[in-house]
Design a protein around this nucleic acid. Structure first.
Lengths: 173, 173
DNA sequence: TCACACTTTCATTAAAAACTGAAAATAATG
DNA sequence: CATTATTTTCAGTTTTTAATGAAAGTGTGA
């Protein structure tokens, strides 16, 4: 007797697989994106074996990617009493997911870039004319833009969903 | 006699190399990011051979990545009269770069995701209770969030830098 | 129309990234 | 403390992605 999945589980299957492909285009490992999709749509927290079985992947792979997701603060570990296994549960609130990803990307991707730009700007601060000056200016422009973006992001990150929505609605007119 | 680079060119060298590494963390091919960095800081448009020589990469590699950057609208082709070579010039205006990247990412990454979410939501629209309903709701929430984000992005994309700045300043208080 | 300058493609190779599976480490239980 | 359940690591393998370099294609001008 095979497992005849209910309709919503078929849609979920599709979601997981496709989210995985989209992930790779985003530069996110396929398995990580799939696990995230799986957990975002999980009625209950899942353990490593659940994930392994569902996605037909190895223990090492499941483990590593689950822990990476925890490192991204997109997934948290749940323990049930009388059970020594770890269960994993994804944040499902879309606004919270957005905030979390914004924070992490800022930290991992934007801030290192800003550091590089500042370093390059500092090294050329005495260039007064020509290409050297232009280079310095370009580094500074990029730095200012990203730094300003970070400020905006920090503000949004600190907002409640409702306030952010209100604010954005005003923009849309 | 070796080429003793001026100070700003050393900083540029650093910028190109490091921007390349940052790129890979972003999911952008190293060479593509390096070429982009090189062109963003180029006093003059560069031809394929210039890029090959500077980055010590093959013709095929240089060609493919230059054309990919053109496909991203981050670089445009310049022709000089009396010269049949193509020269490449990157957009240097930070705000324009931002707009361009936003547009492309929307098209390549967000819109396909929205399509998937809508499909999954549609397939489960009749689920009235329990996990099936929750799944449907989750797909809808994600869809709504991303669609709203696209609207905001479209508005920002259509704004002049100055207006966007003014608007953001208001947010920052 | 031939030769040349340049661009594009693509089969092959190289490099990087992701995944496996099993062993080692850890920690809970009795 | 010994057993057992579970997590973590990692050397080796597979898969994917990127880069090479040479050949094919294109189009311009003599």
């Amino acid at each position: 007797m095979s497992k005849e999945l209910p309709e919503w589980e078929k849609a979920r299957e599709e979601f997981v697989v496709q989210w995985g492909s989209l992930g790779t285009q985003w530069g996110i490992p396929r398995t990580m994106a799939q696990i995230h999709a799986l957990l975002m749509t999980a009625p209950e927290p899942m353990c490593t074996d659940d994930v392994m079985e569902r996605l037909e992947i190895s223990r090492g792979n499941a483990h590593t990617n689950l822990k990476d997701l925890v490192g991204w603060n997109l997934v948290r570990i749940i323990t049930k009493k009388g059970d020594r296994k770890e269960y994993f549960e994804a944040e499902k609130d879309v606004w919270k997911i957005f905030i979390t990803i914004s924070k992490e990307r800022k930290r991992r991707e934007i801030e290192p870039a800003i550091n590089l730009l500042r370093d390059c700007a500092a090294r050329t601060k005495d260039e007064a004319v020509g290409p050297g000056k232009d280079f310095h200016q370009q580094m500074q422009d990029l730095d200012e833009f990203l730094s300003f973006g970070v400020k905006v992001a920090d503000t949004v990150i600190s907002m409640k969903h409702a306030s952010a929505l209100q604010w954005a609605m005003r923009l849309l007119g």
